[in-house]
């Protein structure tokens, strides 16, 4: 289905753009956490909701989601999804302590971390394609993965049962941190990007 809409070259270019954005985000995360954070190869594929829920995460799993709107020359939504356990370990890494941290601190640590991650992601891309891309302030909701993801896609006017997943995953010390950064462009944004890149 994706092959019908976009060429292989376009998808490769998109992967490269997400790779650069995500790489920059991983570097910022490493600096923030004072630990080496790596990024896996970005995932770009078209999946049905059922496939997403069986292959990525169950729809009723309660997760922390931090959402930021992208505005300016292109619009879209960034969603950072972290499991409860990952939120806790990220907060501890950020606080550089093994002590129990309160929910309030955990939450604000996560929100700030996503703010930095997404900003550095966009920074890299803006420079590369010479575009003006800014973000809204982040906000966090804790809810079921399926409720969050389907609502994000509907909000960005994707009404199909098959959705294009664009995401980065991060790892620390070779271990996957149960977090992913999703990017959901509004309709037309990818076309604009491909035009800018000349593909």
């Amino acid at each position: 289905m994706m092959e019908d809409t976009y060429t292989h070259l376009q998808i490769d270019c998109l992967r490269e753009v997400v790779n650069i954005g995500g790489g920059n985000a991983a570097t910022s995360l490493s600096r923030l956490l004072n630990k080496r954070i790596d990024m896996t190869v970005p995932i770009i594929e078209v999946l049905s909701y059922e496939e997403v829920y069986t292959s990525i995460m169950a729809e009723d799993k309660v997760v922390n989601s931090v959402i930021m709107n992208m505005m300016g020359d292109g619009e879209g939504i960034f969603v950072f999804i972290a499991s409860m356990d990952a939120t806790e370990s990220l907060a501890k890494m950020m606080m550089q302590s093994d002590e129990e941290v309160s929910d309030e601190i955990k939450n604000s640590a996560l929100v700030e971390l996503v703010n930095i991650t997404v900003s550095s992601f966009l920074n890299a891309i803006s420079k590369m394609i010479d575009a003006n891309l800014i973000t809204s302030i982040p906000f966090k909701i804790t809810d079921m993965f399926g409720a969050v993801l389907s609502s994000v896609y509907m909000e960005t006017e994707y009404f199909d049962e098959n959705i294009m997943i664009i995401k980065n995953e991060f790892s620390y010390n070779g271990n996957r941190i149960e977090t992913s950064l999703y990017f959901v462009p509004r309709p037309g944004v990818l076309e604009k990007l491909f035009k800018t890149l000349g593909v």
């Binding site: 829920y53 399926g146 389907s150």
Partner: peptide
Amino acid sequence: PDKLITLGLGSC
């Protein structure tokens, strides 16, 4: 006596 289940309704 079956049960019908649907998970993760957001705006749906």
